[in-house]
Design a protein around this nucleic acid. Structure first.
Length: 754
DNA sequence: GAAGGCGGTCTTTTT
DNA sequence: GACCGCCTTC
C-alpha cells in the first residue's frame, strides 16, 4: 500500500495530473495541503523529477513552513531542495541576485507600511499637498493598486485624462517611486512588480528561473493579484507545468488587489487546463458545514459547487445575543473556562474570531481577569513597536547608509540635541548635492548655516562608522547590545513608568533573541548569517507567522488572519449588521462588496471542526460612540433548525454583584489605559510562568495557604478563602478587600503573600 | 529644542 | 477610545 492510497479519488487525480496546467478547486477543509504535499512526493518519487525543479508558493511564512515540514515528512531524500516559499520572499531572493540589472543596488531595504507613510508624509510636505484634503493613505492605496496591476508611474500618468485627483496621484506616484529609488528601497508591492519587470527586461535571468522551476504549485490562488499572476504565468511560460489551488468562495482580499478573475478565468487563460474539484470536507461536522453552505448560497457570483461531509452531525450551532459587548466577552470567557474545566477541550482548541482588531480588547481584559492564557494575532505588530523600529533603523543605517528614512528616524534618538531646523538644512544640502542624507551628515562641517549643530552630528556619524567596522567581528546580538550600551538607548524612556520601561526592555530582549535564533537557523541551513539577511527576514514576517502550533492558549484574531487555519472550538463574535458585515459594505452601492463579506463569514464558519458559537451584542462602543445594531444578516441566513440553545435574553445577575463587577472592570480598564504596552496574554503567561517558582508549581504548592493575606497586581490585597488542586495548576479563591471574591489560577494570578 | 496639552480624525480587513 | 499633528510654554 502506498501513501497515495489514503487519498480519495479526486485527490488522487489531482496528485497524478503532474503535467500541464491544472486548476484544483478545493473547498474549505477538503485536504488541499495534503494534495499539494503528496503531489510533490509523487513528482519526486514516481516521476523522477529532481526536487530542485519543484516550487511551491504560498502567501504566509506560516503556510510555507507547514508545507515544508509536511513535505520533509513525506519525502525521505532531497526534500530540502524543493523551493517552498512565499511570493514575497521568493521575489526578494531573486532581486537580491539580479536587481542591479534594473539599476538598483542589490543591498536594497524593504519598506513596511510605516515607512511608506513616513515617506509619503515627506513627499506631501515637499509638494505642498494639503493632507487634510488628500490623505496620505489615499495616495498610498492608489499607488498600491497601480502596482498590483503592474501600472508604472509613467503609464499611470498617461491614463489620468482630465481627472484632477488622478493627475495629482500620478505626480505623487512618480515622486514616491523616485524617492524609493534614491533610498535604495522597495515597498511590498515593488517586490513583485520589480521581479516581473526584471523578467521582462532580461531574458537570460528569466530563462535561468524557468529552467529551475519546471513544476510550479500555487496555494490560495484566489488571493493572487494581477502582478502575482503575471509572475507565475511568466515563470511557468516555458514548461507550462502550473498547478494552482484555490477556492473562489474564500476570496477575501479584494481590497488588497486580489483579482478573482485569476481563478474564474483560469480555463480561458489556459484552455488545456485540467480542472479538478475537491468537494469532500474532512474538517467540520454536518451542522457546521450546513451553516456555512446556507450562508454562502446567498452569493450570486460563484462557481457552483457542493461541499459535503461524511462526518457526524455534531452539536448544534450555539447563537447568543447579548445587551453589550461586555456581556458577550463574559459569556465567551465563561464558556471557554467551563469547557476546559470540564475536560471537554483545552485552551489551545479555542479560537475567537472577529471582524476588526479593535474587538479583541474586551476579550483580552476578561481573559486577564480570569487568568485564561491567550494570544492575540495581529493588532500592533511586534516589529512596529517603537523601540524595535528604532533598533532596526540603527541596524539599517549601519547596513545601508542609503536609507534616509532610517537615518532620520534615529539621528535624534536618544536625544542628541539635533532638531527639525538642523535636519532641514542637512536635507537641503543632500538634495542640492544629490547625495544621501547620511553622506550629507558626514560632511556636516561643510554645510553652511549649521554652526554649532555640526558638532552634535559628528559623534553620531563617528559612532555609525565605528559600528560598521565592527560588523564583521560581532554577532548580531552583540551588535545590538553594543548599540544599546553605546547610545544609552533606554535613556530615551527616562520619563516613562518603571513598568513601561520593563515592557520595552522585554521587547528588546526578544529582538536580541530573535537575532540569535536567526543566526543559528542560517548556520543550520548552511548559510552565513548577515545583517542584511536578518533585516530582510524581519521585514517579511506576518503576524500570523508567530502562531505556534501545539501551544495551549486561546487564540484571538481577525477573520482574515484565520484563513487556512482550523480549530475544534470556534467563537464568531460581533455578528451584527454594521460590524459584520461592516457599515461601509452595507452602504456601498457595489453589491459585490457584501458578497466579499459573506465569503469572509463563510471562511469563519468553516474554521470550526466540532463546535461553533456565534455571538452578537445589541449595543456596542465603537470609536468612543455607543451604537445599536441588529443581528447580522449572515446569522439570519442560517436555517433555524441548525441552532441549538439559542438565547436572546441575558440572565441578569444580582444587581449588587453586577455593580461590583462593573466597578472592577472600570478599574481594570483604567489599569490598561495607563499601560499602553500591556503585554499579550501569552507574554503575561510567559512572565507568570517564569515567576512560577515563587508562585505555583504542582509539587511545592502555590506558596500560600487558606487564610493567608495575599497581594494581586490589579486587585490589591485580599484573603485566600480556598485552594483547589486542578490539573496542572491550583485554582485559588481570594476575597479581595475592594474587588470582592475572585477565582483565579495560581500560575497566572501571580499572588504574593504579604 | 523639548514637553505637555488640545482638538481633529479615524479603521475594516494585510503580505 | 486612541493616535496624530499642531500649538503653547518652558
Amino acid at each position: 500500500m502506498s501513501i497515495y492510497d489514503t487519498l480519495n479519488p479526486m485527490q488522487q487525480e489531482a496528485v497524478l495530473q503532474t503535467e500541464g496546467p491544472v486548476l484544483i478547486l478545493a473547498g474549505a477543509g477538503s485536504g488541499k495541503t495534503r494534495v499539494l504535499t503528496h503531489r510533490t512526493a509523487y513528482l519526486i518519487e514516481e516521476c523522477g523529477v529532481n526536487p530542485y525543479h519543484i516550487m511551491a508558493i504560498t502567501f504566509t511564512n506560516k503556510a510555507a513552513g507547514e508545507m515544508r515540514e509536511r513535505v520533509d515528512d513525506l519525502v525521505g531524500f532531497g526534500a530540502e531542495s524543493v523551493w517552498v516559499s512565499t511570493f514575497h520572499s521568493t521575489c526578494v531572493r531573486i532581486l537580491r541576485r539580479y536587481i542591479d540589472r534594473l539599476g538598483y543596488d542589490n543591498r536594497f531595504t524593504i519598506y513596511d507600511s510605516d515607512d511608506q507613510k513616513t515617506l509619503m508624509k515627506d513627499i506631501c510636505k515637499r509638494m505642498n499637498i494639503d493632507t487634510k484634503l488628500h490623505r496620505e493613505r489615499s495616495f498610498l492605496s492608489a499607488i498600491s493598486r497601480a502596482k498590483d496591476e503592474l501600472v508604472s508611474p509613467e503609464e499611470f500618468a498617461l491614463n489620468v485624462g482630465m481627472d484632477f485627483a488622478k493627475r495629482k496621484q500620478a505626480e505623487v506616484y512618480q515622486e514616491y517611486q523616485k524617492m524609493l529609488f534614491r533610498n535604495n528601497a522597495l515597498d511590498f508591492d515593488d517586490l513583485i512588480m520589480k521581479t516581473v519587470e526584471l523578467f521582462r527586461a532580461d531574458p537570460e535571468v528569466l530563462d535561468n528561473y524557468q529552467e529551475r522551476f519546471r513544476y510550479l504549485m500555487v496555494d490560495e490562488y484566489q488571493d493572487t493579484n494581477t502582478a502575482q499572476f503575471q509572475l507565475i504565468k511568466t515563470l511557468a511560460g516555458k514548461y507550462r507545468n502550473l498547478c494552482v489551488v484555490g477556492d473562489d468562495d474564500q476570496s477575501i482580499y479584494k481590497f488588497r488587489g486580489a483579482n478573482i478573475y485569476n481563478i474564474l478565468n483560469f480555463e480561458e487563460e489556459f484552455p488545456d487546463a485540467r480542472v479538478i474539484k475537491l468537494e469532500q470536507n474532512y474538517r467540520s461536522t454536518q451542522n457546521i458545514l450546513n451553516a456555512a453552505n446556507s450562508v454562502i448560497a446567498n452569493n450570486v457570483g460563484r462557481k457552483p459547487k457542493a461541499l459535503w461531509t461524511d462526518n457526524d452531525e455534531g452539536d448544534k450551532v450555539d447563537f447568543q445575543q447579548f445587551d453589550t459587548g461586555y456581556d458577550e466577552a463574559d459569556y465567551v470567557t465563561a464558556e471557554i473556562g467551563r469547557r476546559v474545566q470540564e475536560g471537554e477541550c483545552s485552551y489551545g482548541d479555542c479560537a475567537i474570531l472577529y471582524r476588526t482588531n479593535a474587538q479583541s480588547r474586551l476579550f483580552e481584559e476578561r481573559f486577564v481577569l480570569s487568568g485564561i492564557p491567550y494570544k492575540v494575532v495581529g493588532g500592533v505588530n511586534f516589529y512596529a513597536r517603537r523601540e524595535i523600529k528604532d533598533l532596526l533603523c540603527y541596524l539599517k543605517t549601519i547596513d545601508n547608509g542609503r536609507d534616509d528614512l532610517a537615518v532620520r528616524r534615529i539621528i535624534n534618538v536618544p536625544k542628541r540635541g539635533i532638531g527639525a531646523a538642523t535636519l532641514a538644512k542637512v536635507q537641503q544640502y543632500a538634495n542640492d548635492e544629490e547625495m544621501s542624507f547620511y553622506n550629507a551628515l558626514k560632511l556636516a562641517a561643510d554645510i553652511p548655516g549649521l554652526g554649532r549643530a555640526a558638532a552634535k552630528i559628528k559623534p553620531f556619524v563617528d559612532f555609525i562608522q565605528v559600528m560598521r567596522s565592527k560588523v564583521p567581528y560581532l554577532s548580531l546580538p552583540q551588535l545590538l547590545k553594543d548599540i544599546l550600551e553605546t547610545t544609552d538607548y533606554l535613556e530615551e524612556f527616562r520619563n516613562e513608568t518603571e513598568e513601561e520601561v520593563l515592557a520595552r526592555r522585554e521587547n528588546i530582549d526578544e529582538l536580541i533573541s530573535k537575532a540569535a535564533s536567526y543566526e543559528e537557523k542560517s548556520r543550520g541551513e548552511g548559510r552565513e548569517p548577515s545583517l542584511s539577511g536578518f533585516l530582510e527576514e524581519v521585514a517579511l514576517v506576518a503576524d500570523i507567522d508567530g502562531l505556534e502550533t501545539g501551544s495551549d492558549y486561546v487564540v484571538l484574531m481577525t477573520l482574515h488572519s484565520a484563513k487556512g487555519l482550523e480549530f475544534p472550538q470556534v467563537y464568531l463574535a460581533g455578528l451584527e449588521d454594521g460590524i459584520f458585515p461592516s457599515y461601509m459594505t452595507i452602504c456601498s452601492d457595489d453589491p459585490m462588496e457584501i458578497e466579499e463579506e459573506r465569503r469572509l463569514c463563510y471562511v469563519g464558519i468553516t474554521r470550526a471542526m466540532e463546535r461553533l458559537t456565534i455571538t452578537s451584542a445589541r449595543m456596542r462602543m465603537i470609536r468612543g460612540e455607543t451604537q445599536y445594531n441588529k443581528v447580522s444578516r449572515f446569522v439570519r441566513e442560517i436555517p433555524a433548525e441548525l441552532f441549538g440553545r439559542t438565547s436572546q435574553k441575558k440572565e441578569k445577575e444580582q444587581p449588587a454583584l453586577q455593580k461590583r463587577v462593573d466597578e472592577a472592570y472600570r478599574q481594570a480598564q483604567n489599569a490598561f489605559k495607563k499601560k499602553p504596552l500591556m503585554q499579550t496574554g501569552a507574554e503575561l503567561y510567559a512572565r507568570a510562568a517564569a515567576n512560577a517558582g515563587s508562585g505555583a508549581s504542582k509539587e511545592s504548592g502555590p506558596g500560600y495557604e487558606v487564610g493567608d493575606r495575599v497581594r494581586h497586581l490589579k486587585f490589591g490585597e485580599g484573603t485566600v478563602t480556598n485552594i483547589v488542586s486542578g490539573g496542572k495548576d491550583f485554582e485559588v479563591t481570594v476575597d479581595f478587600d475592594t474587588y470582592g471574591v475572585k477565582k483565579m489560577f495560581a500560575v497566572f494570578a501571580k499572588l504574593k503573600k504579604c
